[in-house]
């Protein structure tokens, strides 16, 4: 028997009255929004971390770095750019799916995010703020191993490099 429009209202309301269909609690959505926010922030932090690591890796090869391409390729942390791309992709996907970012020019938003991530990553490396990664946080162990491999780490002192006055270094902190 074909259904009609009155049936549709009745069918929906009967399911609600019978308790077959229940409204999700407000906390479910508060939790979802909080998880999304944490996800986007984590994705951005990962992307910035990866860029600062790439910048550090390239810089520590010194002025003749371009002639040591094999060496750079061999020791380059390839997981870092992959992580950056995955992190950025995840952040964009979350924003597109749940946010109203479509109201703005999305390619412009992506371009701004990319420039901000690259600038933040390079700035963190050059200002030495990435030493925080060596001391605490989930990446500490990796950073210590990586830093040791590149001539930098907790037991290696801080920043090492060639300056106008010769080789410079810092004492362990």
């Amino acid at each position: 028997m074909p259904r009609n429009e009155v049936d549709l209202t009745r069918e929906v309301m009967e399911k609600i009255r019978a308790g077959e269909v229940k409204m999700r609690s407000r906390w479910y959505f508060v939790g979802g929004s909080a998880a999304m926010l944490v996800g986007v922030i984590a994705a951005l932090v990962l992307a910035v971390f990866a860029v600062s690591l790439i910048s550090f890796s390239l810089r520590t090869h010194g002025p003749m770095g371009s002639f040591r391409l094999q060496q750079i390729l061999a020791s380059f942390p390839w997981w870092a750019p992959i992580l950056a791309i995955v992190g950025l992709g995840l952040g964009i996907w979350l924003l597109r799916r749940y946010d109203f970012s479509y109201k703005r020019n999305f390619s412009y938003l992506v371009a701004v995010a990319l420039v901000a991530i690259i600038l933040a990553g390079v700035a963190i490396d050059y200002l030495g703020l990435d030493d925080i990664w060596l001391k605490r946080g989930p990446m500490r162990q990796y950073m210590q191993q990586f830093g040791a491999g590149m001539g930098r780490g907790n037991n290696m002192g801080g920043r090492n490099g060639m300056g106008p006055g010769g080789v410079s270094g810092t004492t362990p902190r």
Partner: peptide, 18 residues
């Protein structure tokens, strides 16, 4: 179409707090 609309009303009710 009727099934789609019915499911729409049910999903809307379930997620009304969102």
């Amino acid at each position: 179409a009727m099934d789609a609309v019915q499911d729409t009303f049910i999903k809307a009710y379930v997620n009304l707090n969102g």
